[in-house]
Amino acid sequence: MIKAIDRLSYALAQLSGLAICGIVVMIVVEIFLRKFAGISLHFVWEYSVFIHISAVFLGAGWTLRTGGHIRVTLLRALIPRAFEWISGVIGLAIALFLTSAMTQLALGYLTSGRTAGTTTDTPLIIPAAFVVLGCVVLTLQITLRLLALLLGRAPELDTTGEDDPAPIMD
């Protein structure tokens, strides 16, 4: 169970990173087409924005699992176990609220069929669905974290999923 959710979180993080690479590809293609063929791809900015917002949430679960989300650890040394419990429970409460809020937003987009309405007709439910998926996985990861605390296991993985992680998260 934990393994399955970790694997899902990892896959989503990979997807989110690749999606950002996709932004690069789109913009570079736009630059060359515009310069040399006089063609401009009108969807690039809007799609990029949607990819970015999706990517932020799709990566959130794995980032939590691997200790990538920043927090103030001033009091951890004082009361290590209670600290993890308190932050975990508060985090879970906020994550649940957030997930519920984003789900309602997405449901609103789904039922109204609302589109971006600026340059493309992208139905907003598409990026919103990714956002909700990311929120759900984030919430699951916090829940599992509390479970790990209960079972006395380490709350975070000791790998980031990279063979050679850049020191930004070390």
């Binding site: 990173g17 950002i20 980032t63």
Partner: peptide, 20 residues
């Protein structure tokens, strides 16, 4: 491998900063 690692690393940082 480098691309995959860069993708994961990017995802983690983008996610952390984006959520903030």
């Amino acid at each position: 491998r480098t691309l995959r690692d860069a993708a994961i690393g990017t995802s983690r940082t983008v996610s952390m900063l984006g959520l903030i």
